[in-house]
Design a protein around this nucleic acid. Sequence first.
DNA 1: CGATGACATGACACCGGTGTCATTATCGCA
DNA 2: TGCGATAATGACACCGGTGTCATGTCATCG
Lengths: 360, 360
Amino acid sequence: MATIYDVARIAGVSAKTVSRVLNSDAPVGKGTREAVEAAIAELGFVPSNAARMMRSQRSRLIGLITGAISMSPEPTQPAGLPELFIVQGIQKALAGSGMTLMIADTGGVIERAAPLIDTFVRHRVEGLIYVAEYHQRVKLPALPAGTPMVLVNCFDDRSTVAIVPDDRRGQHDLVARLVLAGHRRIGYLTLRTEMVAAQLRREGYAQALAEAGIAYDPVLVENCDLEGRDGETQLLWDAIDRMLRLSNPPSVLCCGNDKMALRVYGILRSMGRRVPSEVSVAGYDNHRVIAETLYPPLTTVDLPYTAMGVRAAQRLISLISGEIREEKGPTLVAGPVYWRESVTELRPANVYQLKSVKEE
Amino acid sequence: MATIYDVARIAGVSAKTVSRVLNSDAPVGKGTREAVEAAIAELGFVPSNAARMMRSQRSRLIGLITGAISMSPEPTQPAGLPELFIVQGIQKALAGSGMTLMIADTGGVIERAAPLIDTFVRHRVEGLIYVAEYHQRVKLPALPAGTPMVLVNCFDDRSTVAIVPDDRRGQHDLVARLVLAGHRRIGYLTLRTEMVAAQLRREGYAQALAEAGIAYDPVLVENCDLEGRDGETQLLWDAIDRMLRLSNPPSVLCCGNDKMALRVYGILRSMGRRVPSEVSVAGYDNHRVIAETLYPPLTTVDLPYTAMGVRAAQRLISLISGEIREEKGPTLVAGPVYWRESVTELRPANVYQLKSVKEE
DNA sequence: CGATGACATGACACCGGTGTCATTATCGCA
DNA sequence: TGCGATAATGACACCGGTGTCATGTCATCG
C-alpha cells in the first residue's frame, strides 16, 4: 500500500505538504495541490489511520458493545432483535460527528464483554457504549480512567451514565388510554417478575388503575412468561380461559410484550373468541414485525429504542468533549402508545368518565 | 495512557523486554517477567494497536458492511432483521481466528457503502465482507487490489466470491414435502417478481410440481406483495378469497415469506377458515419470531443465514491466507424445511403416491 | 579447559503519518 | 522604501510499539 512518501515523491513535494493537502489545515498552492491530488489518485493512496492516530493521539473511534446482534437462540432471549434500533439511533446521532463506530458483539453472553472492552481499549476508543438486550442491571469490568461510557437499556451500581426506557410510564399510559376507551376490567398477562421491566410496568398498570378509581383486582393479573419453554402456550391458555370464565371477565388483555400478544391472538382464535369484538388485546414493545403485521394490527406501547440510541450517542459525545453535566440516576425515555385496531373503543374517546353499557 | 516505556522504566528493563513479555515471542527470565507483569498491572497498561499495527503491517481486522442493522423503516425493507444471523454466523466462525471484526452499517442505503469501505481501507482491514439485507444483485465500488472481499446474500457482475441462499431448492423441497403430505392443489402467494428470490422460488415450485406430475395451474399463483404499502391486506384477501372459491380450491397456501403468512393467518381467521384443518399455510424464511410464535406454529423453509455467515467467514479467511481456490459462480447454501402444525398431513407421509379421499 | 550454543537482554532503527519550527517569497501599508 | 504579516513549503523529531542485530552469561561438551 502506497505511503505518503510515495505520493510526495511522485508529486515532487515534501511529505508534510501532502499531509496538508489531505487535511487542508494550512494553505497549499493551487498547482501543488493539483499535483498532489493527481499523485494520490495515481497511486490509489489512502492514509493509514494507525499512523495518523499515533501522532495525533486521537482515534476518533467509539466502541459499541451489544448482545443484540448475535443473540444466540439458546439462552434466555427475552426480547428478540428490535433492540437493534438502539444501534440504529446511535449511528444516526453519530453520523455527522466524524467519529467511526466500532461494533462488537457479545453473543448474548455478558462475560464476553471483558475481552471486547480490552480490544476497544487497545484501539484507544474515545468512548464506549454498552447496549443490553433488555432492560436490566449489569456489572461491567472497570474501564481505564478517562474513557467515558454510556449504558443503554441497562444500568449499574456505579452510577455510570445510563439511558433506559420508562417502562412504568409506558404501561401507565397504555392502561390510562384503555380506561379512556371505556375498559374497566383490564387483564394483565405479565412477563416473569424477575425482569426489571415487569416490575416497573406492573407499577404503571396499578398506578393508572388507581388514578381512574378502579380497584386493583389480583385475579386479572397473572405471570404467564416461561421464556419460550414448552408449556408456555398451555399456561397462557389456562390463564386466559380462567379470566374469561369469570363472572366479571376482562374486556381487554394486556400482554407482557408483543410476542405474547401474538400467541394470545392464536389462542383466542382457537377458543373461538374474536379480536377485538369479543376480547381486546394490547401488547408492549411495538415490535413492528408483529404489531403491524398482525391482523388486526396490535395496540401496543413503543419501546423508544431509536430515541434511546440517539440520546446515548449525544450524551457520549458531550462526555468526550468534556462536559460534566452531572445527573442523578438513569435517564428515562418514554415511548408513545400506538393505538391500533386490536382494542375496541367501548365509548367515544372524548367522552371521559361516562360509563358505557358494556361495563358492570 | 501508559506506554511500554513507562512499564519498562517501572520494571527496570528495556522496552523490548516488555514487548517480549507481551508477545511471548522470545524467552524472558522468570523474575523479569514477574516484574514486568507487576508494572503492567500497576499502570493498567494496554498496548496500542495502532503502534503495533504500524510496525507489523498487519491489522488483524476484518471489515463487515451491512445494511441489516439499521434498516430504516421507511424504504423498501423486504425482509426484516433476521439477516443478522448472517452476522452472527460470521462472528462465530471468526471467533478463534484472532481477527477483530469491525462492523459498519449503511442504514440500508447502498450508496453509503463507499465511504464505509474507505474507512475500512484506512484501517487497513485484511478482508471485507458485504452482507445484503435480501438476496440481490449489487454493484460495489472497487477495492484496492489485494484486499479480498466476500459477498453474502448477494452477488455482482465481477464474479466476486459470493454466498447466497438456494432459493430454488428451498421452495422445491417445501413443495415436494407438501406433495408428500398429500397436497396436490398448492396455492402460491408470491413476492414481487423483481426480487431475485421470487424468481428462483417460483422455479423451485414449478419444478417440484413437475416432478410430482402435477400440472402447473396459473390460477393458483398470484403476486400479492406490495412491500408493506397500504392495500396489501386487501390484495391478499382478494387473492385468497378468489382461490378458495374455485371449484377446485388449494388445500394449502404457500406464502412468499413468513410475514405474509402471518397476515394470511389473520385473513383466514377473519374469513372463518381454520388453520390448518380447513386450509394449510406455509411460509418461507423461518423467521423465528413469527414461525415459532404463531399459533399453530408455521411450516416454513429455513433461510440458512447462520450457515451462510459461517461459510463466508471461512472463505474470507482462506482468501486472506492466500488460497486461490477458484470457483465458478456464487456458492449456494440450502436450508431445511421446518415442518410444523400449520400444514395437515392429508395422508401418512410414508405412503407415497396414494391418493387420499380429500383429493379431487 | 576452551569452543559452542541456548538463554536473556538491550540498543537502535523503523513503520507512516503529523506537530513544531524554520525558511523564503510575496504583499499590503505606513 | 522599509517592515511586519501572510502564504507556501520543507526539515526533523516524535507517537508507541516491534524487527534486527549485538552483547553478555552460563551450561554443556569434546
